[in-house]
């Protein structure tokens, strides 16, 4: 049994300690907003916040976040910065297939929590999640919009 703090709640999870956090979220807890894309920290679809830092959950063993605060897309709107990011994503009509967008929203939230007024270089440096639908220009515009909201 692992005891994890997910979105402010304590959750008991029956999983091997080396199970990636991603699969604990999706399979044990049924929280499917966090996506699987590559499993090797390349695409960012699985991005969650661990103690406020954007973290790729597919390569993060669940046992390594015992005692840390995990925030997922399901709770992102409860964070004031996260809520602004979601509104910017809606108003900029960012998503196409949408599959990468949970991770993009989480990465943007982490960026703006740490750097409220990012430069274009900051955005390019932090927003490294892949989007096969090519929504990158809308993503950058939405991040800029959220920064001024």
């Amino acid at each position: 049994m692992l005891e994890l703090s997910i979105n402010g709640q304590t959750r008991q999870v029956d999983a091997e300690g080396d199970t990636p956090l991603l699969w604990v979220l999706r399979d044990n807890l049924g929280m499917t907003g966090t996506k699987y894309g590559c499993g090797i920290a390349q695409c960012g679809a699985c991005t969650v916040l661990v103690d406020g830092t954007a973290t790729r959950a597919c390569v993060t063993p669940a046992e390594s976040v015992v005692g840390a605060k995990v925030v997922t897309i399901e709770a992102v709107e409860r964070d004031p910065v996260g809520a602004k990011v979601v509104e910017a994503w809606v108003s900029r009509q960012v998503a196409q297939c949408g599959y990468c967008q949970s991770g993009q929203v989480m990465a943007a939230t982490a960026l703006l929590q740490q750097t409220p007024k990012p430069t274009d270089e900051d955005i390019a440096g932090a927003m490294t999640n892949l989007c096969r639908c090519g929504t990158y220009n809308a993503i950058a515009a939405a991040v800029r919009q959220a920064a001024t909201a």
């Binding site: 049924g30 499917t32 897309i73 979601v86 809606v90 960012v94 998503a95 949408g98 949970s102």
Partner: peptide
């Protein structure tokens, strides 16, 4: 016209085949 699926896709609520239980 705004896309009708945008909010669900910005908040992790959209369900894909991979998410089905």
């Amino acid at each position: 016209v705004p896309r009708i699926d945008i909010r669900d896709k910005s908040t992790g609520r959209a369900q894909y085949a991979i998410d089905l239980q």
